[in-house]
Design a protein around this nucleic acid. Structure first.
Length: 275
DNA sequence: CGTTACCCCTGGAGGC
DNA sequence: TGCCTCCAGGGGTAAC
């Protein structure tokens, strides 16, 4: 399921094809995903031109404009969502819930678990949308550094791993990359956030950034007009160092990796290399 | 205020 | 083959 790198790669995959194109038709085959899809959205979208595609956290934001007005189509892939550009007339497969039809191509949204989202935001000022206004910092932005995270965690006794996944603090770090980043930084996912030193946060944050950027690079090199987001083991065919490797040897010390449950999610780590 | 449990939904894997 | 349980990359809400 998509974490930030998968969403970003999806965005990069769409960029050569959609901006400048006019929406000819919009088709929604289910009444709701995570949220109810407004029935008026079909007619609202027709005739608008996609001017740009941006990303905030794991949300894809389609800037849609006409000569007189416009707004934003907000799309979230949830746990199982994927996007694909298909030729007109391509047969539907199960769980293909939505199409945005353009003159030369169709953007098709598939989401078996339906945790994804399709919403409309009328007008500009997309950052004021309630779902976006509460989001934390972008992990690839300059403000996200070790000193910033150290300051933000002084009164947080929760284990660092679920905290990294809290989108109100920092967006886009999901279950896979939280485990992977902590492994690369040598920090135990169980350690209370306020019991990690400034110096170690200065290692952790670059590790998060490097993990995300490597995954984006790997995904970007493997995606063409097929827009990729589903995908088995995640990590874009890059083998994960710890994720989903419980019982297998640590790549660094050889001891068996462990898994624990934190806040209802599986965490993978090496008890020897991570303190 | 911070932290955790639960829920939304479908499908695949593994046990019996 | 079927049925059961558990698990899955997210995240909002409610309750403690």
């Amino acid at each position: 399921m998509p974490e930030l790198p998968e969403v970003e790669v999806s965005r990069l995959g769409l960029l050569p094809h959609l901006p400048g194109q006019r929406i000819v038709e919009a088709i929604f085959r289910v009444p709701k995903l995570r949220h109810v899809i407004p029935s008026a959205l079909v007619s609202r979208l027709i005739g608008l031109r996609v001017e740009a595609i941006s990303r905030r956290g794991k949300y894809l934001l389609f800037d849609c404009e006409s000569a007189r007005d416009g707004g934003w189509l907000i799309l979230h892939l949830g746990m199982s969502g994927s996007l694909r550009l298909v030729a007109p007339g391509t047969p539907l497969q199960k769980h293909d819930h939505a199409d945005l039809v353009f003159a030369r191509t169709t953007l098709r949204f598939r989401d078996p678990r339906r945790f994804g989202t399709l919403l409309w935001h009328e007008g500009g000022d997309i950052e004021r949308h309630p779902l976006l206004a509460v989001l934390g910092v972008e992990p690839l932005s300059a403000v996200f550094d070790g000193d910033w995270l150290y300051a933000k965690t002084r009164r947080r006794s929760t284990p660092i791993k679920p905290l990294l996944m809290d989108s109100h603090l920092v967006v886009g770090v999901g279950n896979i990359y939280a485990s992977e980043s902590l492994y690369h930084a040598g920090i135990s996912p169980l350690r209370a956030a306020n019991r990690i030193s400034r110096e170690r946060y200065r290692i952790l944050v670059p590790a998060i950034r490097a993990t995300l950027e490597a995954s984006i690079a790997a995904g970007g090199s493997s995606v063409r007009d097929y827009v990729h987001s589903d995908g088995g083991a995640g990590c874009f065919q890059l083998s994960c160092a710890v994720y989903d490797r419980a019982g297998e040897p640590c790549l660094n010390c050889g001891n068996p990796l462990r898994s624990v449950r934190q806040s209802g999610r599986s965490t993978f780590y090496c008890a020897h290399c991570q303190r």
